[in-house]
């Protein structure tokens, strides 16, 4: 299970990801395009706890396993490829850190599914001294940590295998 939370601080907005078991997808999927981690600006992240495998995919190519990472470590990603990641530890936490500016938020708006009202709240100077949770959600998506194959999908029974009486 993955918990995802978006919080603003004084000068940054944070994307917090907490995973509570192995083989869970860590990366976020753009709800409009279905693409993973094709970030609009350079993204900085801190892997705070646990370990994960990391994959990259260029264009319509295959997912390539790039690295295995363990906390604590800092990471930087610029969006020339799709990024995928799967937890390999029973507990995993990571923090994405981004500047809280109009131009950055405008670029991230579709990727994070932000509304104009949420962006207004995030940039409201009277809220600067508060930590504001913009939204949070929980999801489950099990992935193969060696191939990035979607194990949730492959566990479904195909229509052709169903016998109708």
């Amino acid at each position: 299970m993955r918990k995802f939370k978006l919080i603003t601080t004084q000068d940054h907005f944070l994307v917090l990801v907490e995973v509570q078991n192995e083989n869970q997808e860590i990366t976020c999927i753009d709800v409009d395009t279905g693409l993973r981690g094709l970030y609009p600006t350079e993204a900085a992240g801190f892997i705070a706890e646990g370990s994960a495998t990391v994959f990259l995919k260029f264009g319509s190519g295959d997912w390539n396993k790039i690295n295995e990472v363990a906390a604590p470590c800092m990471t930087f990603f610029s969006g020339a490829a799709e990024l995928g990641s799967v937890s390999t530890s029973s507990s995993y936490r990571a923090i994405g850190i981004h500047p809280k500016t109009q131009s950055i938020l405008d670029q991230w708006k579709p990727f994070l599914g932000l509304t104009d009202d949420q962006i207004t709240t995030m940039l409201d100077p009277t809220m600067r001294e508060s930590f504001v949770e913009i939204y949070s959600y929980t999801m489950v998506r099990e992935m193969d940590p060696d191939t990035f194959e979607d194990l949730t999908t492959t566990s479904l029974v195909l229509d052709s295998e169903i016998v109708y009486l």
Binding site: V54, L56, I66, N67, V69, A70, A71, P72, C73, M74, T75, F76, F77, S78, G79, A80, A81, L83
Partner: peptide
């Protein structure tokens, strides 16, 4: 400001601290 364990141009991972 830090050494990388992996740097392929797109993705950079700092060494494990």
């Amino acid at each position: 400001l830090m050494p990388f364990a992996l740097d392929d141009g797109t993705l950079k991972f700092g060494q494990q601290l």
